[in-house]
């Protein structure tokens, strides 16, 4: 595990080493939305690639939408950084497409599924759902099956439990 987070001084709100064997991350950080492009530039300059970008609907507990980035290196000494960024509901985030092309489709997917808009994205439009959809599918208040957690499960004899 590399000990130094590359060029991120002053850009992060919190930063800590993480246990890769337990969580799969080597480092975890949080940052303010305004710093996202600078964080992306620091990783990009250090030879990292944007492995994953997604969001979480944290409105119920935090009244926030959370963006989640993971940056990693394409080598045999992996160094996965988890970067979380909490946004006010309805706020936009700066796009990092200008830094790394991978963000193009990933930001479109986050917009498609969570409705988070990215300022500066060259062509922010839906990617997986139909263009004329009037919903964002991964928001918690969309398409929730009540009691999903209590869905019928086979009992030990293989019969479906009554719910």
């Amino acid at each position: 595990m590399s000990a130094v987070a590359p060029g991120l001084d002053g850009l992060l709100l919190t930063s800590a080493a993480d246990d890769h064997n337990k969580t799969g991350f080597h480092h975890r950080h949080t940052c303010a939305a305004a710093e996202l492009p600078a964080v992306a530039r620091a990783f990009d300059a250090a030879g990292y690639y944007l492995e994953m970008l997604t969001a979480e609907d944290r409105r119920a507990e935090l009244e926030k939408m959370r963006l989640v980035y993971t940056w990693n290196v394409l080598s045999n000494t992996p160094d996965r950084h988890l970067v979380q960024c909490d946004l006010e509901v309805g706020a936009t985030a700066p796009s990092v497409v200008a830094v790394t092309a991978a963000a193009d489709w990933m930001e479109r997917e986050v917009y498609d599924m969570y409705g988070v808009r990215f300022d500066g994205h060259p062509d922010l439009k839906r990617i997986l759902l139909p263009d004329d959809s009037d919903f964002h599918a991964l928001l918690k208040d969309f398409g929730r099956i009540d009691g999903g957690g209590d869905a019928p499960v086979a009992d030990d004899d293989g019969h479906a439990e009554e719910t």
């Binding site: 969580t23 799969g24 492995e51 994953m52 997604t54 979480e56 988890l82 957690g149």
Partner: peptide
Amino acid sequence: ETYFAVESARGHFGMYLVSDGSETPFKIK
């Protein structure tokens, strides 16, 4: 949060699992 990656026939397949401590996943990316 947990991240787990494997090498599929097509490349790096990663699963990002978020638990809120309940019986259902909070999120699986």
